[in-house]
């Protein structure tokens, strides 16, 4: 564990909680892509199946359980409790165009051709593009609430910090996971345009165009 990874994990946690609280407090999921949230629930589920097979640390186990729990809670709020406020018409990204190629890629390029490992690889690839329906939705409506941009910023920051974590681990531990690194770079790049807008507009009154 290094500082980049710890802050990265906490940033990820902050993003998830910000989104949950935003929906809960406003009793509305307007402007939130349910599809992205379903993809994240799939990401956590397929990645953390190792909860059943291996124990890494109490921290690791707790965070995984919290991430999974929050992901499903978010999906529940969007599609069940506050579904009347869900803006399905603007959430029109075709997720099969992500899930099918990503599934194929996971079968082709992985560290080990085993069930759990392919699911892990699938989750890594899928996470790198899971935010696309959300970014697509914002670009379509041309606007995002400030709180939604904070959510996206924390989510992007988490991945950017993981890049520093991998540089750190390469130098000090000789650790090197090509699949995670390439997917992490792709994921971070997807946020660059957003980061630029977030910083220059200073989180105020949004007319967001991507």
């Amino acid at each position: 564990m290094n500082i980049f990874r710890l802050i990265g994990d906490l940033s990820h946690l902050a993003a998830i909680i910000i989104l949950l609280l935003k929906i809960w407090k406003s009793r509305s999921c307007a402007g939130i892509s349910g599809k992205s949230q379903i993809l994240f629930a799939i990401v956590f589920t397929t990645r953390y199946l190792d909860l059943l097979t291996s124990f890494i640390s109490l921290y690791n186990t707790c965070m995984k359980v919290i991430y999974i729990g929050c992901a499903y809670a978010t999906v529940y709020l969007i599609y069940m409790k506050f579904r009347a406020t869900y803006d399905g018409n603007h959430d029109s990204f075709r997720v099969e165009f992500l899930v099918v190629p990503v599934g194929g890629l996971a079968v082709l390029i992985n560290h080990d051709f085993s069930f759990l490992e392919i699911l892990w690889t699938f989750s890594i690839y899928l996470e790198s593009v899971a935010i696309l329906p959300q970014l697509f939705m914002i670009s379509k409506t041309g606007e995002a609430e400030t709180i939604t941009t904070h959510y996206l910023f924390c989510l992007g920051l988490y991945r950017a910090l993981y890049l520093f974590n991998w540089i750190w681990r390469f130098y000090f531990e000789g650790f090197f996971d090509m699949i995670a690194i390439v997917a992490g770079v792709v994921q971070t790049v997807l946020y660059c345009d957003f980061f630029y807008l977030y910083v220059t507009k200073d989180g105020k009154g949004y007319r967001f165009s991507i």
Binding site: R5, I56, M63, K64, Y67, N110, D112, F113, S114, A180
Partner: peptide
Amino acid sequence: AEGEPLHDEL
């Protein structure tokens, strides 16, 4: 591939 790697990150 030399066995399943242990993934210690989140």
